[in-house]
Amino acid sequence: ETGKELVLALYDYQEKSPREVTMKKGDILTLLNSTNKDWWKVEVNDRQGFVPAAYVKKL
């Protein structure tokens, strides 16, 4: 879809709370919100949640 910003997972991340999502290094995720410098909201496999901003980079 146009207008979607994507990020690349630089590291594996295992969710530690229900508000977070698990990702694997190399995953491409849809970026939903990056206003917080530490935690970015992403969508992966129809799930939305937060990942550490340092673990992903914008494509």
Rank of each mutant, 00 (worst) to 15 (best):
M23K: 01
D38A: 11
I28F: 06
G49D: 00
Q48A: 11
D38F: 15
P52R: 04
V7M: 05
L59K: 04
A53K: 06
P52T: 02
L32R: 04
K58R: 13
A53L: 02
T30Y: 11
E1R: 09
L29M: 14
L8P: 00
K57F: 10
R19Y: 13
K41G: 05
T2E: 13
K37R: 12
T35M: 10
K41S: 07
R19L: 13
A54L: 11
I28S: 03
K16P: 04
K16I: 07
E43T: 07
E15N: 07
A54H: 12
T22V: 03
S17F: 06
T30W: 14
K37Y: 08
L6Y: 15
R19K: 11
D27N: 07
V42A: 01
K57L: 14
T30I: 15
Y55K: 07
K37T: 11
K16R: 14
A9K: 01
E15P: 15
D46P: 06
M23E: 00
T2N: 14
A54E: 09
V7I: 08
S17K: 07
K37M: 10
K58Y: 09
K37S: 12
E1H: 13
D46C: 13
K25N: 04
T2M: 13
Q14I: 14
I28T: 06
N36H: 11
K16E: 08
V51W: 00
K24M: 09
L32G: 01
K57V: 15
K24G: 05
K58N: 07
Y13N: 00
P18Q: 09
K41E: 13
K25T: 07
V21G: 02
A53R: 13
K24H: 10
A53G: 04
N36Q: 09
M23V: 09
K57E: 11
D27V: 05
N45Y: 13
V21Q: 03
T35I: 09
W39T: 02
T2D: 13
W39D: 01
K4C: 14
L8T: 07
R19S: 12
L31N: 00
M23R: 00
L6K: 11
T35Y: 09
G49T: 02
N45G: 15
L31H: 01
A53N: 02
W39I: 03
P52S: 02
D46Q: 11
Q14R: 10
K4V: 13
K4A: 11
K41V: 14
K58C: 10
D38H: 15
Y13E: 00
Y13V: 01
K58T: 08
Y11R: 15
P18K: 09
L8V: 15
Y13G: 00
R19W: 15
A9P: 00
N33F: 07
G49H: 02
L10Q: 04
L32E: 02
V21K: 02
G49L: 05
E43G: 08
S34Q: 10
L31E: 00
D46S: 11
A9D: 00
K57W: 10
D38V: 14
Y13Q: 00
T30G: 08
Q14C: 11
Y55H: 06
P52C: 04
A54K: 14
Y13P: 00
L6I: 08
L29R: 01
N45L: 12
K57T: 14
E5Q: 15
N45H: 14
V42I: 07
D38L: 14
G49A: 04
A9R: 01
L6M: 10
W40R: 01
M23A: 02
W39F: 07
N36S: 10
I28D: 00
V21F: 13
K25D: 02
N45F: 11
K16G: 08
L31I: 05
G49C: 03
Y55N: 05
K41P: 01
P52M: 03
V42P: 00
K57S: 10
N45Q: 12
F50S: 03
L32K: 05
G3M: 14
W40M: 03
K57Y: 10
E43W: 08
W40P: 01
E1C: 15
R19I: 12
K41A: 08
K41Y: 15
D12C: 06
V44K: 15
L31Q: 00
K37D: 11
L10F: 03
R19Q: 12
E43Y: 07
K37C: 11
F50G: 01
L10C: 08
K41Q: 12
L59G: 04
K24T: 09
L32V: 12
K24I: 08
T2S: 14
E20C: 07
E43M: 11
N36R: 09
K25S: 07
T2G: 14
A54Y: 09
S17C: 10
K24Y: 12
W40G: 00
A54I: 10
N36T: 06
M23Q: 01
L29E: 01
R47G: 04
E5Y: 12
D38P: 03
N36M: 09
N33S: 13
L29H: 03
K41D: 03
K4P: 13
A9S: 05
N45M: 12
L31P: 01
F50K: 02
A54D: 09
A53E: 03
T22F: 04
N33Y: 07
G26F: 05
K16D: 06
E15L: 07
E1I: 13
G3V: 14
P18R: 09
A54T: 11
K4F: 13
G49K: 02
L31W: 01
V44S: 15
L8R: 09
M23L: 09
N45V: 11
T22S: 15
L6D: 04
E15M: 13
L8N: 02
L10G: 02
D27S: 08
V51R: 00
T22Y: 04
S17A: 08
Y11I: 09
Y11T: 08
E43S: 11
R47S: 06
W40I: 04
L29A: 07
V42Q: 00
D38G: 09
K24S: 09
V56T: 04
L10W: 04
E20A: 07
A9Y: 01
V21E: 00
P18W: 10
P18D: 12
V21W: 05
V42W: 00
E5G: 10
Y13L: 02
P18T: 10
K4T: 11
E5H: 12
L31T: 01
P18Y: 08
L29I: 07
E20Y: 06
T35P: 04
G49Q: 02
W39M: 06
K37G: 09
V42E: 00
W40Q: 01
E43N: 06
Y55L: 13
